[in-house]
Write a protein that binds this DNA or RNA. Structure first.
Length: 259
DNA sequence: ATGGTTGCCGAGCAA
């Protein structure tokens, strides 16, 4: 079972690039972020016509997450538990019924800039809520995949110019510590389980020719429960997607599971 | 230091 995460930065603007990628790479499950659409306006045909089931959790203008799957999706839930006041669409869960059953969560973790301020406070509070949900999911002892745009640069080697990110919400020590707290519950960050060293990124800014200079950051991650980590066969980043016509500023990151 | 770009949607905000 191939599971990918992809921040598409707007479903309407990606009406060509997203179906092209789905056709070429054929992930079984695609966790999509920043759909930037309400559910009623989502062009479902773009995805359903390729043989995918689709579950969306949208919001007007901003945010929004979705799950596309060639396998049936069951027990879909929307929204990150822990704050009934939070109306931002950043979390969706579903059970994928493949050869094995895998519980997946698609997430769009808050950016948090500028620091300090309410947006950074919201980011840290959101990560605390995510930690609680991640711990709860572990107790099921099932294969679990938490995939999405984490807006976290885990290590200096995960960005081309660490000095430029020193005071940024994506790279502050407090942000990285909150990310490690989730990992230390018992999750494995899939990419780093298989690939070491610098130069591997999942996002390049649209500005100043960042992609051409490979001035990127690695902020899209797939976290695996122990039972999912046992099934890990391969990982990858579809870097070439960033060179496509009308690309997202992120590229897909994927895993292949024995499931 | 500023501005550089894109997407939402039709003015700025978010990233």
């Amino acid at each position: 079972m191939k599971i990918a995460t992809f921040n598409i930065n707007g479903i309407k603007a990606r009406h060509k690039a997203l179906p092209a990628w789905l056709e070429e790479q054929s992930p079984d499950v695609a966790l999509l972020q920043e759909i930037k659409s309400v559910d009623e306006a989502f062009p479902r045909d773009l995805i359903e016509d390729l043989g995918y089931n689709l579950e969306t959790h949208g919001q007007k203008g901003f945010n929004g997450v979705a799950i596309a799957s060639k396998y049936p999706l069951e027990d879909v839930t929307r929204g990150l538990p822990g704050d009934p006041e939070d109306v931002q669409a950043r979390w969706i869960e579903a059970t994928v019924v493949g050869a094995r059953v895998v519980r997946v969560a698609g997430l769009y973790l808050p950016n948090g800039n500028p620091v300090p301020g309410p947006k950074y406070d919201y980011k840290l509070a959101w990560m605390k809520r995510m930690k609680a949900r991640a711990a709860e999911l572990l107790r099921t002892e099932e294969p679990i995949v938490l995939g999405g745009d984490y807006n976290v640069i885990p290590q200096p080697e995960d960005c081309a110019r660490p000095a430029a990110w020193e005071k940024d919400a994506l790279f502050l020590p407090q942000t990285r510590a909150a990310f490690r707290e989730i990992l230390n519950l018992g999750y494995t960050e899939a990419f780093r389980a298989r690939v070491s060293g610098p130069g591997h990124y999942s996002f390049w800014d649209y500005q100043a020719g960042a992609y051409q200079r490979n001035d990127g950051i690695r902020i899209d991650h797939l976290l695996l429960s122990p039972q999912a980590a046992d099934l890990l066969r391969d990982v990858g980043i579809d870097k070439d997607e960033r060179a496509r016509d009308k690309p997202s500023d992120h590229v897909p990151v994927w895993i292949e599971l024995d499931a």
